[in-house]
């Protein structure tokens, strides 16, 4: 069991998302940086989709109520165990009573803590991911509070088998505060003037401080529409870049609505979504580069294959 001592303003339980209910208007939610949660889970011998902790905005402090193996991952956070700085992207044995902290640092904005066995709160609509605006999932649908206790499932292997695994740095996403992400143009490309598309692909945008788990608002060169900024609402995904009348794009994130009424100029590819998520609101800058579906899928498959190095094959 884990006991939350101080969750900061926004620590939530997340898994890889709640799929299958978009047609009812339920966003996917789940980890903003899916790569980091997936990696942390694999490090501690969990299914990739097991529930872990996502910390954003402030610091997190918790106590291991039993011996456990955990791994921290993400960007913009440092891990401390009993006051000692420990590496991210590595599984660590923590003794009962250990105090575990995720402290904010520059260079990102979402930290993850996975524990061997996973957090086993009640799934809602098939997922433990917390969707705060819809009061769904996690513990009572909301951010965690001081004193919350989190039940942990049975680890897949013994602690000495699970501890000490790490991820080679070369397979990590290219996190940073000035990034370029690949996009697939469309589906409403024809709603933009050629000049608008050129501006989108050649400008650098600042990630606004008002961004959140729902969407990242970008500030920078305005994108011209061809015929107004309203369309009949249609479906959106994580990574959809809508352009409202202001001409500044908004990228839909984990809690983004399932439908939207502004034209979508492009979609951020799966392989680059984690780096975009970690491009910190108020500090990050992002540019966009067009790619093809085939190239994007090849990159994503390579990224997921890279994680196989830590999948348990009994070393």
């Amino acid at each position: 069991m884990l006991t939350i001592i101080d969750p900061g303003p926004l620590t939530t339980i997340q898994d890889l998302g709640r799929f299958g209910f978009a047609r009812f208007g339920v966003p996917v939610s789940g980890a903003m940086d899916m790569f980091a949660l997936r990696a942390a889970n694999l490090l501690v011998g969990n299914e990739a989709n097991a529930a872990g902790l996502e910390v954003g905005i402030g610091d997190l402090m918790l106590e291991a109520t039993d011996d456990c193996v955990l791994a921290a991952a993400g960007a913009g956070y440092d891990l401390f165990v009993n006051g000692r700085l420990m590496p991210l992207w590595m599984s660590i044995l923590c003794r009962r009573g250990s105090v575990i902290e995720m402290r904010k640092s520059p260079g990102g904005c979402w930290g993850y803590v996975a524990v061997a066995g996973g957090i086993v709160c009640e799934p809602v609509l098939g997922s433990r991911a917390t969707f705060v605006r819809g009061a769904l999932g996690g513990l009572n649908g909301g951010p965690l509070r001081g004193g919350d206790t989190l039940p942990v499932g049975a680890p897949s292997q013994s602690p000495w088998q699970l501890a000490g695994r790490e991820i080679p740095e070369m397979i990590l996403p290219k996190y940073g505060e000035a990034i370029t992400v690949d996009v697939i143009i469309g589906p409403q490309a024809e709603r933009f003037a050629d000049e608008g598309l050129r501006v989108f692909l050649s400008s650098e945008y600042a990630v606004s401080a008002t961004s959140d788990r729902m969407g990242y608002r970008l500030q920078g060169a305005t994108i011209a529409h061809r015929s107004g900024a309203d369309i009949v609402s249609d479906g959106m995904v994580r990574g959809s870049a809508q352009v409202p009348a202001s001409g500044e794009p908004m990228v839909m994130m984990a809690d983004g609505p399932t439908t939207g009424g502004y034209p979508k100029i492009a979609t951020v590819v799966s392989a680059d979504f984690p780096a975009l998520a970690q491009c910190a609101p108020g500090a990050g800058r992002v540019g966009f580069r067009a790619t093809t579906v085939e190239a994007a899928q090849a990159r994503y498959r390579a990224m997921m294959n890279g994680l196989r190095v830590i999948e348990p094959d009994d070393d």
Binding site: F19, F21, V237, T258, A296, Y300
Partner: peptide, 18 residues
Amino acid sequence: VAECAPTYRSLLVRYDPL
């Protein structure tokens, strides 16, 4: 295919690229 989400005038089909 993970799901099909109909809207007014279009259908979004999500799939696993793996």
